[in-house]
Structure formats: structure tokens, C-alpha cells
Write a protein that binds this DNA or RNA. Structure first.
Lengths: 228, 228, 228, 228
DNA sequence: TATGAATGAGTGTTCATTCAT
DNA sequence: CATGAATGAACACTCATTCAT
């Protein structure tokens, strides 16, 4: 613990006397997430992962059997982080709209804290669609986690009466569209992401489009009218 | 579905007796669009394009100077097709909501007619984000066309009074989110795409989420209540 | 003859009504000589020869069976031109030194008239050394012509008493060295070529290097002392 | 003379037990020098370099980033070797003629020891003339070294009075012609090279050509009459 | 005569992966 | 734990050549 190998200056470490295996592994995952997010699976070479992590390509193989395993590990990490936060965000909220708002705000916060997280998950969906072996590598946990979270959210909306049971599939497709769009279209720009989140809530609360010749609809419930 | 010895119309190829240059070029563009859409730019090799088009790799270079030029040509094709249809779809409609519905229905129709169109454009956005040279190759016309179309649509909504001027940026980000989401999340499945389109219009018309304890809001204007 | 296809402006000719086969063939040889001279055999593609000659690659094959045949034809042309001039230059001169001077001046004039001639012959020697099939293609006439011309010149020098019989091989190697050097080292620059020719004659006539502490030697024969 | 499984010293290669990186790199440079000399830059494929060095093409790229870098490295090696020997050869000699003779003898010795050295440098000049990227790759040190060495030699001759100042450019062009000729015309044959060197010194010392009807000139200065 | 379309072998180069040390 | 050396299959692209028209 007294022999931490400083990497801040980007200098290559030699052969550290007490290298911390877990820390090196995490370093690989961190740089890999950013690289996969920015360039995709195929265009991210092991060489550049190794370089950015201050290693040689060979060393990577001490931690992961193959490139695909790095990708899967990065995915598991990201997936866990996101849904732990989502779960925490909706906890204790009583209405579907509140929970929806909480999830969107949470997504916005996450995107601000570490843009590579959302970007990786978006990139990852593309790579899975493009390459069956990539899809297989993350199949164990990916769509399930996303789908079940939002299906639960819809079920909750039905239970509160805010959503009609007959509209379940429509809501499901809508969620997929919107969450994907948030990640793919605006996660790279904070202001756009903010606007998109506001827009979604505006649509949901009917504050965004009025019929021609009509006044704006009254807010759904006066005590929770948003300022924006 | 390999097309090594047969063209789409069943004509023999190989050392064709009366080779139709334009048709071969279009065949290259067609298979390239599908391959780029499915596997992305980098993972689509010239070899597989050639194979699917019933040619050898060398022959590709008779029609295009380099791989990137194929990509750019496919993109121009797709871009032109989509926005010609979009322009036609909104023509003569008097309200923003009508135009929005028309655009979404048009997108849905296009997606049914040739799923590779939307998929390519979505794939293409990803490839441009991942690789600067790809971005440069389509820079002349890509974001402009999309952005200007939807900006015009928003302006129209403002002119009719359906959208508040102050919300322009929010609508802009929302459109980007939704159109991207439609392409990236549900264009591969007709039913999902249908549901997503219905969901968006449902949100816009306030038919999708009600406040707890409230009745569904009345349709915006009775005479134009949508059936779906 | 009234329908000459003007090429001066570099415009591609269509399908000339009365194409002159011999003239086209010569055009190919002319551009090929310059290209082979500048870039060598291997780096000169049929495509660029065709382009520069205002043809397509296919058309080349009407005139020549293969690329190597173009090279051989260019070589025969150049070889003939040079040695006809050399033969004419030495004719009627009575001393070896006069003949040598005449040959060098002739080489200098040729180099000024069409630099691609000497350059091609230099280039050609290199290509023959580098590639056995190229060597074979010009074997019928190449080294023979050069060698026999200069061997004759040496024999003439022996017959006049200017050269000692025992030095024949030395003169032979020296000629090869000097003529190759002129082509390879200085044919690209008129002034350098001029200086080199003057230098060779200066050496031969003993005007270029004196022993330290000695005066310049008297000119070999007063009546023909060169001005330069 | 393929060296697929055996190195020059008979050591086994392949997946070597104690791979000596520096030795492998030198082996690449050695075979590359011979191949570049014999076939030129363009016609020497990485595949054949690798084969002759007992490697696969991929392995080459562990040592050099690109083919041109191999060429540049070979060139630097050869350049250094030659001019170190030339510098040593002329050191301590008092007259221009002695120095010239020493340089030519040194060139002859080098050519006997490793013919590929001179041949590469000749080949290299041709490749640089033919291809601008090759020229650029060796631009840092090539013509400078050659030119400055011989310019210094001429200056020395002027300082001793053996050369007239006004003839500097002529000597310079002559040196370029002769050294190029030695390499390009006769370096492939020891006897020819020997004869050419003797011929040059014979010319310089006025022993090679006499005026018709005159006796051979007396040696320049009795005490330093050359044996050869 | 000449074109236009195509082939197939070749090029330099990159990459995931292996493994002795 | 990590390196350094190597493999072999892939990739984008070029080229001499062919041949129906």
C-alpha cells in the first residue's frame, strides 16, 4: 500500500514490486469502457487498451482470456452500476410519474458523472446488434435487466391507475425508444440531454403541445407543477 | 440468400454477356446498404460486399475508388429517399400535430418497405461518431438534412401556436431523441415500431398518462381524434 | 490525314473515325518511354500509360501483347536512335580523342534534345539488373550494341597509337563506368552534364589535375587545344 | 540460400527459445539490404524479406513500423559504414591524388567485402529518384554525406594546388559521374571494378591516353609514381 | 480499333492471440 | 505479473490481363 504506482503522469510502469492485481484489472476495465464507448468493440484493439492501461498486450491476457471477456466484464460493471442507481432512485416514490421523473433525472445525473457509462451501454447495444458473438457474450444479463426494470415501472403505473393495462405494450416500446434515444442521440451533450429529459416529462405532463386554438391544459395536479 | 450466381431478377451474372453497369453499381449499393446497416462500416469487408453482389473484390474498385466512397454513396441514396418521402408526407397538412403524425407514419411505412434504410441511417450515425473519416465522408449533407427538416417542423408548430417559442430547444432535443430511438431501438421489429409510433402520438395528445385520481383528458379536438 | 485527332489539350479522344494505328502505337511508346524513365518498369502501370496516351488499358493490348513488350519496343527505339547518332558523330574523325569528344558531345546534345532518352536507357539498365524477365526481353540487342560501339572505339584508339593494347580492358571498364555515370548521375541537369563531359575530356587531356609543385602540363597538341 | 530455418550462425529459429531481438533486427536489415540492392524498393515485398529472414510478414512489423522504415534503416547503416571507411582512408594523406587513390581503393575493398553495400546505395539513389516518398525517407542524410565528402576532397585538392579553383564545379560533376558509374556499372564484377578504378587513376595521372605521335608523358613526380 | 467490365493474384499492414521467459 | 517476440488470418487496395462488344 506504500508502493502505489503513480500513473497520473501517464508514464509506463516498469515491473511494480507489489502490483495490485485487482487494481490493474479495474484499470483495464476503466480504459476499456471508455475506448469501447468511443470507438466500438471491433475498432478498439487490445494494443490500445494495453497502452492506455500502461501494459503490454500480453499482460492483458493474464486478466482476461480474450478480448470479448473484457467487453463482457465492462458490460457487467456498467449494467450493475446503472440499475443499482435506478433502483435506488425510484424507491419510496408513490406515483408512476414521480418514478419516471426520478429515473430520467437519475439517468441525467449518471450521464453527467461519467458520460462513458451511458455511452458504453449505447455503444454496446449497437455492437451486440452487429456481431452475434458480442451479443452472446452479454446475453446472460443485458436485455433482461433493462426490460424487467421498465416492465416493473409500467406495472407500477398500471397499479396506480396512471396507465391503462391495454397500453402496456405501447409503453414498453415507448420506453425502449426513449431510453435508447437519450443514450444514442443526446448523451454526448449535457444541455441537449437536459432538454430531452425536460421534453419527455413535458410530453408526459401535457405541457408541450396544445391543440391549435386551445389554451394550455391545466397541470395534472397543482401541487407538483414543475417550474421548468 | 447469397447472390453469387443469381441477381435479384434471376439473371445470370459472372462474365455477363451484356453487363449493365448501372445495374451492377446499384446492386453493390443495395448489398452494401444492408451489410453496413447490419454490421457497421468497419466490420463490412469489401470481400463480403463483393461476394454478396456476385463479384470479386477487384471489381468493386471499378465502380468506387475506395470503400468509404461506397459508404458515402449509400448514405446519399438513403438520405435522399427518406427526406423526399418526409417532405411529401407533410405537404399540405395544416397543423403541427398532423404533420408530426404524418412524419411518424411515413417513417413507419419506410421501415416496413425497406428496414435496411432506417437501419443504415442509424448505423451510419454510430459509425460517424466512432470514426472521424467516416464522419467526414458524409459531412456534406448528413446532420444538416435531418436537423433542418425537424427545425422547420418545430417552426411550423410555433407558427400555428401549438408550440411555445420558448420550448424550441426542448422540442429539438426531443425530436432528436425520439427519431434516434425509433431507428436504434425498434426499427428491427414492426410491431414494436408500430407501438412506439402510437406511443409517441399518444403522449403528444395526452392520451397515455393521466394523473392519479383523474379521468383521461378529453381529446384535444373532437373532429381530429386519432383512431389508433 | 484531314481528321487528325488533336491531343495537345490533353482531352480524351472519343472513337476517332480514321484512327491512325501507327501513330497511336508511337504515342504509346513515347509516353511509355517517359514513364519508364521516370518511374521504372514495375512502378509504371498500364493504366497510367493508357491514360497518358488517351486510351483505356484494354486498348493497349491491341498494340502490345503484354507490358513487357512495350518496354522492349521502347528500348529498341531508344537504342537505335542513340547509336545511329553515335555512329554518325564519330564518322570521319581521325583520332581517338576527337572521336571520344564527339561521342561525349553527341551524348550531351541527345540529353538536351530529349532527356527521357538517356534517362530511359539508364533506367532500363537498372530494371534489367533487377528483374530477369526484363533483362531477357531486351537481351537480344542491349549490351551488345553498347559494348561493341565502345570496343570499336577502343580498337580505333589502339590503331592510332593513342591507347596501349595492354590497357584494353581498363579502357573498357572505364567507358562503362563513365557512360553509366553520365546517364545515372548527371543526365537530369544540363549544367552538371556539361561539367561532367568537360571534366572527362579534361582528365583525358591532362588538364585537370597537376602534381603538387608542378606547372600544368603542356597541351597534348597545340593545334587542337580546347577553348573550355 | 534461403534462411528459413537456419540463421547465418546455424542457430535454430522459429519460436526461438532465447530470441535475440537485436540479432533478429540485424538479420532483417541484412537480408533487406541485399534484396533492396538486387530488386529495388518496390519489387522487394515484405513477404520475401520475412521469408529470407526466417519470419512471417507480421513479425517484421514488430521491428519496423512500415516497409519504408526498413529501407531508411538499411540506408543509414550503409551510409555510416561507407563514410566511416572513407574518412579513415584519407586521413593523414598529404596530396589530393593520394587521397583520391585511397578513396577509390577503399571503395574497391568495400565492394569486395560486401558487394551489397555499394549496390544498395546505387539502387537506393535510383529508388529515391523514382519515388518521392522513398526520397523523403532518406533525405535527412543522403546526398549531404556524399556531396560534402567529395566537396571536402576537392577543397583539399585546391588547397594543395593540385586543382584549380575555377574547376571546382567540373570536378564536382566528374566525381558524381565517376562514383555513380563505379557503383552502377561495375560493382557487380570484381575484375571490372578493379579495371575501372585503375582506369580512373590512369586518367588522373595521364598514363592512359597519349596524343598521337607523342611519347607517354613522364610520371608527374618520380618519387610518388604509382605501382598499379 | 477501342471500350468497359471483370478476374485473381499480389501488396503493405493490422490484429487477436500465444507462450517462453 | 508482465514482457517481448512471434504467428497467421484478415483487410483495403492495385495491377496485368482478358474478352465480349
Amino acid at each position: 500500500m506504500s508502493t502505489i504506482n503513480l500513473m497520473a503522469d501517464g508514464q509506463r510502469i516498469g515491473r511494480p514490486l507489489a502490483a495490485d492485481s485487482a487494481r490493474t484489472r479495474q484499470r483495464i476495465l476503466d480504459v476499456a469502457r471508455q475506448l469501447f464507448a468511443a470507438r466500438g468493440y471491433e475498432s478498439t484493439s487490445n494494443r490500445i487498451i494495453a497502452e492506455e492501461a500502461g501494459l503490454t498486450t500480453g499482460a492483458i491476457y493474464y486478466y482476461f482470456d480474450k478480448k470479448l471477456d473484457i467487453f463482457a466484464a465492462v458490460h457487467d460493471d456498467a449494467q450493475r452500476t446503472v440499475y443499482e442507481r435506478f433502483d435506488a432512485a425510484v424507491e419510496g416514490l408513490d406515483t408512476f410519474v414521480d418514478r419516471l421523473r426520478a429515473v430520467l433525472e437519475c439517468a441525467h445525473d449518471l450521464n453527467n458523472e461519467d458520460p462513458s457509462l451511458a455511452q458504453f451501454l449505447g455503444s454496446c447495444r449497437v455492437d451486440a446488434a452487429r456481431d452475434a458473438t458480442v451479443a452472446a457474450a452479454i446475453a446472460n444479463n443485458r436485455p433482461g435487466r433493462h426490460r424487467s426494470f421498465f416492465n416493473d415501472l409500467i406495472s407500477f403505473g398500471i397499479s396506480t391507475g396512471e396507465i391503462d393495462e391495454s397500453q402496456r405494450d405501447i409503453h414498453s416500446a415507448l420506453f425502449r425508444t426513449i431510453t435508447t434515444g437519450l443514450v444514442d442521440a443526446v448523451s454526448g451533450d449535457r444541455a441537449h440531454h437536459r432538454n430531452a429529459v425536460d421534453g419527455i416529462m413535458g410530453l408526459v405532463e401535457g405541457r408541450l403541445v396544445r391543440a391549435p386554438g386551445r389554451a394550455w391544459p391545466q397541470p395534472a395536479s397543482p401541487q407538483e407543477q414543475p417550474a421548468g
